[in-house]
């Protein structure tokens, strides 16, 4: 089976499956209807959070289903942005998350290349090990990681957190990237090698540019994982309030019994914006980048 359909195949393919003109109007309406309903289900809970964040402070819980509540107010946003340390926390998260996503991508991109292009002793066990790390229940690792970090003096610093985030997402990233590299024909590099280019620069100039979709996906995954992590952040930096990430801060709006729902919703919406933007921006790569190492000719 060929991965890249020829021009003739594509036209047949498009005629058959992609063209909506062949569908009867009734069928088209049904399809749109199904998609509209699904889309509403997909975003409705988010809209509800928006709605709660707009409610005046004394009416956070109500049985009204109106998405824009009567006498909507931006008060919660004002408090979160100007009276709490929230902006500092978000800034910390941005700094930490960007750094880890970049480091994570670099670590995974190079390792995945080794896995994809060489056979070496330890390769298969290595891949199985990477896969099995996905099966470790996260709560299990927290206590030993904390102990290790405090022995190395890495608690209450960004250093420990950045290192931990960059490394923990590496196995899955390697998996995705290796799968993608595998679909890039070796002949391209071999031609370059014959021209006297070194292996590393062949990787840099040929393989990496061709892997943009997968690299974007891996960056996105790393970013998402670090951005919304609670367990590790709690273990590593919970005792230094100025270092907090937004997750710790937002958790703080929910003390033992009481939840400050207004602040919680407003800050949730605010931190969702960058991730959703990043996600939607890269969604054009999502479909081509996530090959999971299996779509091979």
């Amino acid at each position: 089976m060929s991965n890249v359909p020829s021009a003739k195949q594509r036209s047949a393919w498009e005629r058959f499956f992609k063209s909506g003109r062949q569908d009867s109007p009734f069928k088209r309406i049904l399809i749109h209807l199904a998609l509209i309903i699904s889309s509403i289900i997909a975003i409705y809970p988010v809209l509800r959070v928006v709605s709660v964040s707009l409610r005046p402070g004394d009416r956070l819980l109500s049985t009204s289903l109106a998405l824009i509540p009567p006498d909507a107010t931006l008060e919660a946003y004002r408090v979160v942005l100007f009276e709490k340390e929230f902006p500092v926390w978000v800034w910390n998260s941005i700094a930490i998350t960007s750094a880890t996503a970049v480091i994570g991508v670099v670590l995974a991109a190079t390792s995945a290349y080794a896995f994809s292009r060489w056979r070496f002793p330890g390769r298969s066990p290595g891949l199985v090990f990477l896969l099995s790390t996905q099966m470790l229940p996260a709560p299990m690792m927290m206590v030993p990681i904390y102990i290790l970090a405090s022995k190395l003096g890495l608690t209450q610093t960004y250093r420990g957190l950045v290192i931990a985030y960059s490394v923990t997402s590496v196995p899955f990233s390697i998996w995705i990237l290796k799968g993608y590299y595998d679909t890039i024909p070796r002949e391209l590099e071999e031609a370059a090698l014959i021209d006297g280019v070194s292996r590393l620069s062949a990787f840099w100039r040929i393989v990496l540019p061709l892997s943009t979709p997968a690299l974007a996906i891996v960056f996105l995954f790393n970013f998402m994982a670090a951005w919304s992590d609670y367990l590790l952040a709690r273990v590593m930096i919970a005792s230094e309030r100025p270092l907090w990430t937004w997750v710790l801060g937002v958790r703080d709006f929910q003390s033992q019994f009481q939840t400050q729902w207004g602040l919680f919703s407003a800050s949730s919406i605010l931190v969702m914006v960058p991730v959703v933007a990043l996600f939607l921006y890269s969604s054009k790569w999502l479909i081509s980048g996530l090959t999971l190492g299996s779509v091979k000719g």
Partner: peptide
């Protein structure tokens, strides 16, 4: 001072963990 607020349960868990690692508040 460095004042840190933790839920009652979290405080117990974290203090035990910190004790295990030898880095208590």
């Amino acid at each position: 001072f460095e004042i840190v607020n933790k839920d009652v349960e979290t405080l117990r868990e974290d203090f035990l963990t910190a004790g295990l690692a030898g880095s208590m508040p």
